[in-house]
Design a protein around this nucleic acid. Structure first.
Length: 544
DNA sequence: AACGACAGCAACCGCCGACAC
DNA sequence: AGTGTCGGCGGTTGCTGTCGT
């Protein structure tokens, strides 16, 4: 046998030595001595050659047929992480890092799923990166997630259909919403004196689920430090009124002694001003600083990269119990939300978010409120939204919900408030049409009407944030603007069959929003779609 | 130069689900 | 239905290089 390696051709002796290894690196399986430890270039060459000939899979056969003294698992790992083509080596780019953070905020430690969003990256790489990041940020006393990610996760949380039950029958499908607070609020001794980001109060309705959740906690203190620059329409339906959650996220500054604090808090809690505390007060045990949840007790032990939902050190339990009183209305939901782990062991320590960190509770409340309100009062739709789901039946897969944004703020990306009417209307699953135009595509009860491409009279400008780049077919479709403004991360999207046709998919959140440009009867216009409770992985929106 | 702390990375291990029998 | 095998995934460990003291 003669193998050419990166280091040149090997003699038989060298080859044998490289393949078998020394005694310390061998393991015995079924009488066969299997090598462990680092792979040599000779082994790599053999494995590459084998895969070229036989393809991937059937890894246990590699050892039998190739002469490699490695177990199948080892071969698979080596191939997947190092040898397969199109692997991207080197440091993560900023974009990749940002994506990882957001994906982790949404998915938790689902490295393989995250890797699917990062072409050329492996789950192992991402995992290593994340673990390193955890250590780094812990040491620096920084929250693991930037505020943006927290808010996004919260928004996704509040937009989920609470009636949907996951495969384990435990409630929400989203695997890891609550882990954000797991990592944010533990063991963060430093960085006091600044405040977590939060959307600006002005212009926000108290009906916002987020604020409701916050109001429920009543002990929380936060504000934002700057006036709003712009607002954009991520609209929340959960509470039945028109809510715009601003997504202009900025770093926050120390405002502990800021006289504006109380004013801001009043804006947050218009009906509850007697109950809020001023910043810096230490009544009760919690202060909310820089995204960290601190307690007067000693800092907790090191944070695991992903604590299962509601897994918290006992440190917090007494404090939380003492300061929190949950609405009885929410109790039935409670049992649904717990259940992240099949064996239930993680809940032994802390079985309720009431025992957890603050943001955890906020998310919990937000979701609970969202669920209750969605179920009880979905009828009160906000003024500018056309909610079609209501007319389409009560259960089962469905609905399209069309939002006609009223985005008139000067800084809005929807600055030109061209209506989407006439361009990309939707119909309900029951076939109710809004007009008589032919629909080009129908998927899952959603029908998107489109106009011939030559009707494009007002294409979105080249550098407009409303314009998506569809120029790289097959590559993950990801728009900074969309992500920032909608608060949702696309699970999967790619261009297929020509410009203007975007396949967008989502298998982990059941509320997908698209805001951007669509060809309308009057040309390109701005639009906002919301797909509610879509049970399938892939939805399609099609533009001419 | 020696040492320790740390980061980065590769690889292993155990568990679990899918599948075939 | 029960069992065994295989592949995938996530957690963990150990090695190596770098940097600061």
């Amino acid at each position: 046998m003669s193998i050419d390696t990166e280091d040149g051709p090997l003699s038989n002796e060298e080859l044998e030595s490289q393949l078998i290894g020394d005694e310390s690196s061998r393991g015995i399986t079924s009488g066969i001595v299997l090598k462990k430890g680092p792979w040599t270039s000779a082994e790599d060459a053999i494995l590459i050659d084998y895969v070229k000939k036989h393809g991937e899979g059937n890894w246990n056969a590699v050892q039998k047929h190739s002469g490699l003294f490695r177990c199948g698992k080892s071969c698979r790992l080596r191939w997947a992480n190092h040898l397969r083509p199109n692997l991207k080596k080197g440091a993560f780019t900023e974009e990749e890092e940002r994506l990882i953070i957001e994906l982790h905020a949404k998915m938790g430690n689902k490295w393989a799923r995250m890797a699917a969003h990062l072409p050329g990256r492996t789950d192992n790489e991402i995992k290593n990166y994340w673990n390193t990041r955890i250590k780094r940020r812990q040491r620096a006393g920084l929250p693991l997630y930037p505020p943006e990610a927290c808010l996004q996760a919260l928004l996704e949380s509040q937009s989920q259909d609470p009636s949907r039950v996951n495969s384990r029958g435990t409630g929400y499908n989203e695997p890891n919403m609550y882990n954000i607070s797991d990592v944010m609020f533990h063991s963060m001794p430093a960085a006091r004196g600044s405040l977590p980001y939060f959307p600006e109060p002005p212009g926000m309705s108290s009906d916002n689920v987020l604020l409701e959740a916050l109001a429920l906690t009543r002990r929380t203190n936060f504000t934002s430090s700057q006036p709003p620059k712009r607002s954009c329409g991520l609209r929340s339906h959960v509470c039945g009124s028109d809510v715009i959650v601003k997504k202009e996220l900025r770093s926050f500054e120390p405002v502990q002694d800021d006289p504006k604090v109380n004013e801001s808090l009043e804006l947050f809690f218009p009906d509850d001003r007697d109950n809020h505390l001023s910043l810096g007060e230490t009544q009760d045990s919690h202060s909310f600083v820089n995204g960290n949840f601190s307690t007067p007790k000693p800092a907790c032990e090191a944070v695991k990269s992903e604590l299962p939902s509601f897994q918290y050190p006992d440190t917090y339990s007494s404090n939380w119990d003492a300061s929190y009183s949950a609405s009885p209305l929410l109790d039935p939901i409670d049992s649904n939300i717990h259940g992240e782990t099949p064996n239930g062991t993680v809940h032994s320590e802390c079985s309720s978010p009431r025992n957890s960190g603050l943001l955890d509770a906020l998310l919990y409340e937000a979701r609970a409120i969202s669920g209750v309100k969605n179920q009880l009062s979905k009828k009160s739709s906000h003024s500018s939204a056309v909610t079609l789901s209501e007319s389409a039946g009560e259960s089962g897969p469905k609905f399209c919900e069309t939002e006609i944004g009223n985005y008139s703020e000067p800084m809005s990306p929807f600055g030109s408030t061209t209506s989407i009417y006439g361009g990309s209307e939707l119909t309900a699953a029951n076939g109710t049409l809004l007009d008589s135009h032919p629909f080009k595509e129908t998927y899952f009860g959603c029908k998107l009407k489109s106009e011939p491409a030559d009707n494009v009279s007002n294409p979105v400008e080249e550098n407009s944030p409303n314009r998506f780049d569809f120029s790289e077919p097959g590559l993950p479709f990801y728009s900074d603007w969309l992500e920032q403004e909608s608060g949702f991360i696309m699970e999967e999207a790619s261009l297929e069959e020509g410009a203007g046709e975007a396949f967008v998919g989502n298998d982990s959140i059941n509320d997908f929003r698209y805001m951007g440009s669509a060809l309308t009867g009057q040309g390109w216009g701005n639009c906002s779609y919301v797909w509610k409770s879509m049970p399938t992985v892939r939805q399609v929106c099609k533009f001419p």
